[in-house]
Design a protein around this nucleic acid. Structure first.
Lengths: 348, 348
DNA sequence: TTGTAAGCGTTATCAC
DNA sequence: GTGATAACGCTTACAA
């Protein structure tokens, strides 16, 4: 005998196969089935096999909502990124999601479009699902968000940023260092009049940090910086065109340009070709981001590649460590400073 | 007086502010608070205001997990895509996520990498969260997946595909039509020897459908097709280079090439420049996808743009309609055939 | 190793 | 318009 009686028809969860159904099918209590699912070691061999068979036969799918409510912690992790499309964060999301999935955790995702208000809305909604952890981008949040995060008491990770003084887990790189690296690279290759082109989006603080690094490196080499700020209302690609055109018309045009990102650089490259400026002969170019098209341009674009995928993977690993899903011997690393990689191509 | 007594210290949900706390703070029952949240119309003005104040003061965040368990339907929608990064699906995810968020629904996301097995795993995990709806890519699923989906009894949407005969909601476009459109466009512009370059990834059935459309259109015009199949182990960009090199060495080289996607075309473009083949003078080029770099290439790439963002937005809208969140007068559209747009640029 | 009992925080139902 | 009560399906705590 396996089954006992028809379960009385209930009002809600219409016909869903429950743990209880499996338990009765096998002839054990629901706790044994629950243990089979969560701590199989504590279940006898015989029960393990019979429960496995029943699960398959009945097509039982554990109700994670009920489990989450009972245990006050669901196997779900929430992430807020500025945007999903766009060349920057997609790899981070991908790495994060895949690593989580491998360990049975699911990803709850929303985008903020660099608005702390939208971020706040997303986080408020997320917290309702009692996620096991929360991952955000950068350290810039609204006051209400900070309050919620403090009250939530779950692992919090800030990515694409590195603020050692802040409490959350930090996973990112130094934009300042990127500026230094790029500038030194151009200096080493013999360029003397190196300009920096800022992003047209005024809110891009990271770009300004990269610029500061550039200024420092040039200062150390005794070279005077030359910063170009595009009109704020232009799309980056157009802003890059504008920058190149205006810079090359100056009395002493630069012999190298460090663009705040690859979109700007691509615009610059195109404008250069149209204007008959030889790259890198007349002027070298360096971007940031290693967007997918960087190697497809003519000439291919030298750039600095941020560890986008690695940030996502590491964020997931730190989350899983904090949750005890992954166990390591090492001390837990709250601060994770990753490195960018300079990729020299034809444009420099 | 507002508060009554300290809530007894419970074992689990450590210190979380509950609906009950809000109710006691105001002096009503939890049901009134619940109604305030879900059907505010049924709550008196006075209570509405006092509850609103209490919610703000206490920092109450509704526990959606508990709500989901009680009502057997959470405000969460699950989506499986082949990949998150990559130029194809990111826009769809973005549009889907944003539209959902605007209506208070959250996105649960996973990627399948075109593996029905991984898709099955993701869907199994998702169903545990009783999502309000499920969105997948294409109609190709494992048997077990089909069974689960049938049993789940929630709105199911298949995107980036269009199979009128299948039961789920369909949102996509006709790849065959894309092939026809592209070929006719090239014919109209006077090209006579038009080649088609397939994708190097053998599993790309959509590309083969586009190719079939190309063959049909050429047949109707009395032109014989010329299909090039790259080596299967090459990355698309490299495959494109190979294709161009070999095609241009033939006795009668093509005067136009229709590439299965923009990555292939970009490779072809680069190889052409290196080989001194003038584009579009010696040979025109047409791609598919309108990847971000298409307009940045030299010459800029003519291509066919799929409605990626629109697919995502429409998927969300259909979900929300089916759930009754959005109400329209029109009859519900189960079949949604969208159109691609041909973007003529310098390469043709 | 297994079972019993008591919640987890919300909503459906029905009564007032 | 409001409230009492009983689920929702699972896990924690404790007992055997």
């Amino acid at each position: 005998m396996t089954d006992t009686a028809d379960p009385p028809r209930k009002r809600r969860g219409a016909g869903r196969v429950t743990q209880d159904a499996v338990a009765r099918h096998v002839g054990v209590s629901t706790m044994t089935v629950s243990r089979y699912l969560n701590q199989p070691d504590q279940v006898s061999d015989e029960h393990r096999q019979r429960i496995a068979a029943a699960v398959a036969e009945l097509g039982y799918v554990p109700n994670l909502v009920a489990g989450g409510l009972a245990s006050a912690k669901g196997k779900i992790v929430a992430m807020v990124v500025p945007n999903i499309s766009g060349p920057i964060f997609a790899d981070t999301i991908q790495g994060f999601s895949d690593t989580l999935a491998r360990h049975g955790y699911q990803l709850l995702l929303a985008s903020s479009y660099f608005s702390t208000e939208q971020e706040e809305r997303a986080i408020r909604a997320f917290l309702g699902w009692s996620p096991a952890a929360l991952v955000v981008t950068s350290h810039f949040h609204s006051e209400a968000t900070e309050k919620m995060l403090a009250a939530a008491d779950i692992p919090l990770i800030e990515t694409w940023d590195y603020q050692p003084d802040r409490a959350p887990i930090q996973i990112g790189f130094s934009h300042h260092e990127v500026g230094v690296t790029g500038a030194r690279y151009l200096l080493q290759r013999g360029y003397q009049r190196i300009a920096f082109v800022l992003n047209s989006a005024a809110g891009d603080f990271s770009a300004q940090e990269r610029c500061a690094g550039y200024v420092q490196a040039l200062g150390e080499a005794g070279v005077s910086p030359q910063i170009f700020t595009p009109a704020g209302d232009l799309a980056p690609f157009e802003a890059g065109k504008q920058a190149l055109t205006e810079l090359m018309q100056r009395a002493t045009p630069p012999d190298a340009i460090f663009f705040a990102n690859d979109n700007l650089a691509a615009g610059g490259l195109l404008a250069a070709q149209r204007a008959g400026v030889s790259i890198p002969g007349d002027c070298a170019m360096l971007g940031f981001g290693d967007y997918p098209f960087a190697e497809m341009l003519m000439p291919s674009l030298s750039t600095i590649k941020p560890p986008a995928l690695q940030i996502g993977v590491l964020a997931a690993e730190r989350v899983l460590q904090r949750l005890g899903v992954i166990v390591t011997d090492e001390v837990f690393q709250r601060l994770n400073l990753l490195e960018c990689r300079l990729i020299g191509r034809e444009s420099s």
